[in-house]
Amino acid sequence: MKTILSGQQLALTVKRLAHQILENNASLQDTVVIGLQPRGIFLSDRIVTELQSLVPGGKVVYGKLDITFYRDDVRKSLHIANSTDIPFSLENQHVILIDDVLYTGRTIRAALDALLAFGRPSKVSLCVLIDRRFSRELPIQPDFTGKTIDTIISQKVKVCWKERDEVDEVVLI
């Protein structure tokens, strides 16, 4: 087991990602943040809290998306759905999708499909904490990356959050 990010590094990375998101769009005009259920939510919650303290007025439009019904492997394994909460239209909005680990890219493919059910975004950007860059099965790349790592398939990246696992850290198993 190898530590990829310690608790302190994780906190700094979250801060940096929030600042990078604001770099090109300081007021988050026509921008919405969408966290991916279930595990992306821990990251998106923190980034949104950070953004709220940085944006004038503290107003960040934030939703949660579950992609279970859009998966391409329904017949292979049954996944339990989590709740989706997007009580606004994505029509002509810049959507910032947030997930914890980018691996094969299939989750993001499903998410892009799912987003269209809520309107046609003007742009979609992807923000991830960990990018396993050599494991992609689809042509999908992140726009904001916490840390890029090189891994082989037999390895597993575990992201721990204080809210659930009592400690903040990212480890490679």
Binding site: F69, T84, F118
Partner: peptide
């Protein structure tokens, strides 16, 4: 979860 799907502008999933 499906009840929420039915409130969306596009009430259809590809499952």
């Amino acid at each position: 979860q499906f009840k929420e799907v039915l409130q969306r502008p596009v009430k259809k999933v590809p499952s």
